[in-house]
Amino acid sequence: MQIVFMNRLSKNSGDSTGGFAQLWIGEEEGEWRLGWRDFGEIPESVDSLWYEGSSWNEMLGVYRHELAVKMGEGYRPLIDGVFHEEEALTGRNQEQLKLQYYSEQNVNESIYEELCGWRRKKASSERKAPYLLASNRLLRLLSSFLPHTEEELLQIPGVGEAKASQYGPEILAITSAAERSHSFPLSWVGGEVDEESFTSWLYKQKEIKYKKQLERLRLRRLLLQGIADGCGIEELKERSASSRREILEAVEELEKDGYIVDSLIDRELESMPSVEQEAVWSAYREIGDMLLKPVLHKVYGEDIASAGSLDLHYERLRLIRLRFRRESEGAQGLATHPQEQV
């Protein structure tokens, strides 16, 4: 096996330097191997094989995720830039991340729960998804820094003029009622943050991010194999331990990236009458394909929401939309480049 990359990492243990480790990537006849050799504080080394296979992309995904875990544990590389494509933190980005880190360590739980309750009721009354009003991250920031005025509210990352205007009074009614021991502006936060703990937290965020990327990559590979094997959504669900919704979203991403998933579409729509399929196609042509609900009502009527097969109807609409968009984009391409027609 040929070693194509190696890096040495050391780990601080309290006031003294702990052990060190080697991270390596090897290749032999198209097979990639990714490993970790931990020398610890004792002479004997411990080897771990993180990946063995032919996919460079999957190997790179494992590399990033597992390395983020080790960096979160305190390992630091001899050669920096170990994540490749790593985002450089600007001063403003780092400042906002420190606010997020501080808020997670110092959240006012009772205010956080009150804000969650407000968001839940507001989302229900406005018929919106709760995250569209405010993310959990924003609610933690609010419950930690407790703004008392609109000027202070606008200093919280994630709050803009529109959100402050629309929801500010209701948010401030909750946050301003709580006592606080700090002041605004929040420039003092950086001095309260332990740099080593903050760095480990940053790598924990990377670990979460890369784990999600790796899961999507593995699901993608499994779906491509399953579709090639003639599987339907239910069989893909069993193979991947994913929900039908997650599978449909992944299939849409595959189609967007140029993969043809017609065999899956054919299998899922084989029990759907052609007249019904044509009605859906006509509805897309008439009112567009951005939103599914108007198409659903156009084809099946306003009372369809009470039907027990609503999820099935939405699945079929999404599958037909894949073909509709592909053909629409193809037609636009021919119209743009008519000289390429045969």
Rank of each mutant, 00 (worst) to 15 (best):
S274K: 13
S274P: 02
S274C: 14
V275K: 11
V275E: 15
V275T: 15
V275I: 09
E276P: 14
E276A: 08
Q277D: 10
Q277V: 14
Q277H: 06
Q277N: 04
E278R: 15
E278W: 05
E278C: 12
W281C: 04
W281V: 02
S282H: 03
S282I: 07
A283I: 08
A283L: 02
Y284L: 01
Y284A: 04
R285G: 10
E286V: 01
E286R: 10
I287C: 02
I287T: 09
I287P: 01
I287K: 06
G288S: 04
G288T: 06
D289W: 00
D289Y: 03
M290V: 09
M290G: 05
L292S: 02
L292N: 04
L292I: 08
K293R: 04
K293N: 05
P294K: 09
P294G: 01
P294H: 15
V295A: 03
V295E: 05
L296N: 02
L296F: 09
L296R: 14
L296Y: 07
H297V: 12
H297F: 07
K298N: 08
K298S: 14
K298Q: 15
V299E: 02
V299M: 06
Y300A: 07
Y300P: 15
Y300K: 14
G301I: 10
E302H: 09
E302Y: 00
I304Y: 01
I304D: 08
I304F: 09
I304L: 10
A305L: 12
A305D: 08
A305S: 07
S306I: 03
A307M: 09
A307Q: 10
G308L: 08
G308E: 10
G308W: 07
L310Y: 11
L310D: 14
D311H: 03
D311I: 00
D311L: 11
D311C: 00
D311A: 01
L312W: 12
L312P: 11
L312D: 08
L312F: 10
H313D: 04
Y314P: 07
E315M: 03
E315V: 12
R316Y: 13
R316K: 10
R318F: 13
R318S: 09
R318P: 14
L319M: 04
L319S: 11
